[in-house]
């Protein structure tokens, strides 16, 4: 395992530490002079940056509204396809497809579905309802992006939970049935506790990745309208690759990092509860 440990340290820790060091410097990759030490300046100016504060709130809302839905729907789907029947492979694949299609390609479809004359408005007008400006309205844009993200994330969560369901010994169900447990009680007292370790993983990973939500925002709304979908990671990307300001981008990244770690740790503790 020693080479593996060295590998992990080199390729996973070093870039992070390097980024952390950069957050105390002013650095453009284009510059010839290299990073220039500025101390905690980037962090202190973030404190008074209203755009950053707002992006944090938007990111928080985004995580909170996507996470429960995607986990709940994925759990339902996982339980539906967790039985052996002819064609189960087809359904599992169908539900996993969104996760594997090229995001840039499929985002064109979503843009069109959300557009003025797109699919969603056609469906609304079929029912005699007025069309919506899904991505152009401050009230709906973040929800529209969330819907696409839920769609994209369903498959992976389903697969994880499916694997988790496999790890619950069948004997536990049988024993509970012998004790006269109904379907709800089986779920409540056998399935959920059995899923706990995998659920911890799913929730922690979803928090980590949702809080870094960027790609779906980039392709759908570019942070608009009126900044209502500008997540922190969108700001970080813009700062780093559009404005070439890697120092302040790194500072934002590590503030986000601290918050993500804090929240995922709390939720992991919350779900694992007392270990039986």
């Amino acid at each position: 395992m020693a080479p593996a440990a060295v590998y992990v340290i080199v390729f996973h820790f070093v870039p992070v530490v390097y980024g952390f060091v950069l957050s105390f410097t002013s650095y453009s990759p284009l510059s010839r002079s290299g990073p220039e030490f500025v101390g905690g300046d980037h962090y202190t100016s973030l404190l008074s940056d209203p755009d950053f504060g707002r992006a944090l709130l938007i990111t928080g809302r985004y995580v909170l509204q996507v996470l429960p839905l995607t986990v709940a729907i994925a759990l339902v789907l996982a339980m539906l396809v967790n039985r052996p029947f002819k064609g189960v492979g087809f359904f599992r694949s169908a539900l996993y497809i969104p996760h594997i299609v090229s995001l840039t390609a499929v985002s064109m479809i979503w843009l069109w579905m959300y557009s003025q004359n797109g699919l969603f408005n056609e469906v609304l007008s079929f029912f005699g309802l007025p069309g919506q400006a899904w991505l152009l309205d401050e009230q709906t844009a973040l929800n529209a992006a969330s819907a696409m993200r839920i769609w994209k994330a369903l498959g992976s969560n389903m697969v994880l939970l499916l694997a988790g369901l496999q790890s619950i010994p069948k004997e536990l169900y049988e024993a509970a049935r012998v004790d006269g447990a109904g379907r709800w009680n089986l779920f409540r007292y056998v399935t959920l506790p059995g899923l706990r370790p995998i659920l911890v993983y799913v929730v922690a990973m979803d928090i980590i990745f949702l809080a870094q939500g960027f790609a779906e925002i980039f392709v759908l709304t570019q942070g608009g309208p009126l900044g209502s979908t500008t997540t922190v990671n969108y700001l970080i990307y813009t700062e780093a690759f559009q404005y070439n300001q890697f120092g302040s981008a790194s500072a934002m990244a590590f503030v986000l990092f601290a918050l993500i770690i804090g929240f995922s740790y709390l939720s992991m503790r919350g779900i694992s509860g007392r270990r039986n």
Binding site: L22, I208, Q212, N233
Partner: peptide, 22 residues
Amino acid sequence: FYALVATAAVPVSVTLIPLFLM
């Protein structure tokens, strides 16, 4: 273990260039 998991919480915008240099 926690440090390892935590590395996933650093946006790739930050780690891309160090990785490239490595």
